[in-house]
Simulated scan of single mutants.
Amino acid sequence: MDRQLLSAIAHRDHPIAAPVSAANLDRLLRRAALPEGARVLDLGCGEGEWSLRALELVPSSVADGVDISPHAVSAAERSAAARGLSDRLSLHVTSAAEFSATEPYDLVICLGSTHAFGGLTETMDAAAKFVRPGGLALVGEGFWDRPPAPEIAEAFGAYPDLAGTVTTAESGGWLTVYGHVSDLAEWDEYEWSWTGTLARWSADNPGPDGEQALAVMREHREMWLNGYRGVLGFVSLLLRRV
């Protein structure tokens, strides 16, 4: 079964697609204080919840959403249509690393998709190419809240701690102007939604696809509950280009 389809199914009940509550998503976007006519770029947009909410907060703004998954982009198209935002959101099925634009943006969003560029440093370098002078980036990234077990560190890679993550984000000419560290309740809501949606889908779709979805869910839940829960943190940073 297509892994992109599995991911799209898993995120159906949590389109924010990160351990961030709707209230804190709003808080982060409001802190951006986007101007009238703002241009927003969402790299790794998934179902488009971040860019769609930005469009709702600034009715004169426009956005581009970029994702490699056609399943996620289709979900974003449906959500934009349901919210009357289709004419202000342009969606692109392509790699975030290969996307190009002719005009700069006021805000570049990359929440939980830094892997598309190879890491946080590379993501900030990419954002710098898209944002206008003095513009903003809203980037979400994992960090180790406490030292992980060796097998968890091997599975996730060499994340720094929170201080190291902020330092890395700022190293290429950026200044952090706001941030949000996800709490355990936000993590649990995200993970229970992810695993629960896959579990329900697998029960409703018996056969090889359902069995694969169930196996993926169980593997993910095991690593979460007995591995990174309370160990892996997530920070959303609002940074200004300086």
Results as ranks from 00 to 15, higher is better:
residue 99 F to H: 14
residue 100 S to F: 08
residue 102 T to S: 14
residue 103 E to H: 13
residue 103 E to A: 11
residue 106 D to A: 02
residue 107 L to R: 06
residue 107 L to S: 05
residue 108 V to G: 02
residue 108 V to P: 00
residue 108 V to I: 13
residue 109 I to Q: 04
residue 111 L to N: 03
residue 111 L to S: 03
residue 111 L to T: 06
residue 112 G to I: 02
residue 112 G to V: 03
residue 114 T to F: 04
residue 114 T to I: 14
residue 116 A to L: 12
residue 118 G to R: 04
residue 118 G to L: 07
residue 119 G to S: 06
residue 121 T to F: 02
residue 121 T to C: 02
residue 122 E to G: 00
residue 124 M to P: 00
residue 125 D to W: 01
residue 125 D to M: 10
residue 126 A to H: 04
residue 127 A to I: 05
residue 130 F to H: 05
residue 130 F to W: 07
residue 131 V to M: 13
residue 132 R to N: 04
residue 132 R to S: 07
residue 133 P to T: 13
residue 134 G to T: 08
residue 134 G to H: 13
residue 134 G to P: 12
residue 134 G to I: 14
residue 135 G to R: 01
residue 136 L to Q: 01
residue 137 A to F: 14
residue 137 A to N: 04
residue 139 V to Q: 04
residue 139 V to N: 04
residue 139 V to K: 02
residue 139 V to W: 02
residue 140 G to C: 08
residue 142 G to I: 11
residue 142 G to C: 12
residue 145 D to H: 08
residue 145 D to Y: 07
residue 147 P to E: 07
residue 148 P to H: 03
residue 149 A to M: 15
residue 149 A to L: 15
residue 149 A to Y: 04
residue 150 P to M: 10
residue 152 I to M: 13
residue 154 E to N: 11
residue 154 E to T: 10
residue 156 F to G: 00
residue 157 G to E: 04
residue 157 G to V: 08
residue 157 G to K: 06
residue 158 A to S: 09
residue 159 Y to I: 02
residue 160 P to E: 09
residue 161 D to R: 06
residue 163 A to N: 05
residue 164 G to F: 10
residue 165 T to K: 06
residue 166 V to Y: 08
